[in-house]
Amino acid sequence: MIPAAFDYRRAGSADDAFAQLQKLGGDARVLAGGQSLIPAMRFRLARPSVLVDINGVAELDYITMNGALTLGAIARDSAVERASWIGERGWSLIHDVSRVVADPVVRQMGTVVGSLCHNDPSGDWPAVALAARAEMVVRGKDGQRTVPIDQFLVDSFTTAVQEGEMALAVRFPAPDDRTAGSYQKVERKVGDYATAAAAVQVSLNADGTVRGAGIALSSAGPCAVRVTDAEALLKGQTPTADLIRAAGEAAAKQSDPQADLRGSVEYKKNLAGVLVSRGLRQALARLGVQS
């Protein structure tokens, strides 16, 4: 449980961090909350030659709420959990997830952007970012660019962040007052990876039909899964019990989990469907629609 030897640099500013990454190249890793990276280093699964620590960079530690929600690179999970806006209906997906990410101790240090950059297929934030149609702000050689989340999450533990680049923020678009969400997670214990989890966000038209739905799964494949079939099923329809069941079935079908100590493939697929249906029912209930 002792990491291999590594160098450590403490960045003084975002510019400094970026400059160091450019200089140090591929063996350097950004250290944000460190809740995944440090355990991986202790098991010697990750052996970066140098860490660039951004924890002291005050300009990256922010949560701004300006219709849309932007979280800086070292905004902690716990800060999101405690934020005052979180009780608003439109942010119910974020509200839910902020209370079940890992465990309370990990949330104290862990960051949302760090979790998205880690892109663990069993992480909570990638599925939530897909359902909420978030976008990432990435700094590269040619300056800042904005990357839609579907393009950002490339594959297991792989994102659109290239060598020498760093993610600066995540941005969640502003929901309207006919939007609500839900995060449903089954885990063996607090702090465990999800056995299965479903992120759901629904927007309704004035006539009660679905204007748009974001549905995504965690622990259901090599990367967080957007359940496109369920999203398509719901669009333009009046939500009914049958429709919700069908959306769940689509999710079960599209989920592609691996058997492990958390459960068999068939159990996890079943669970994905159950959780999507439950999430939809809860999101709709938050909009005053019983289904």
Binding site: D103, R188, K189, V190, G191, D192, Y193, L261
Partner: peptide, 16 residues
């Protein structure tokens, strides 16, 4: 051995 640390050998917390 498939349970080589507390990620896979579960010890309940006060929350469970």
């Amino acid at each position: 051995n498939l349970n080589t640390n507390f990620t896979d050998y579960l010890v309940p917390t006060s929350l469970e």
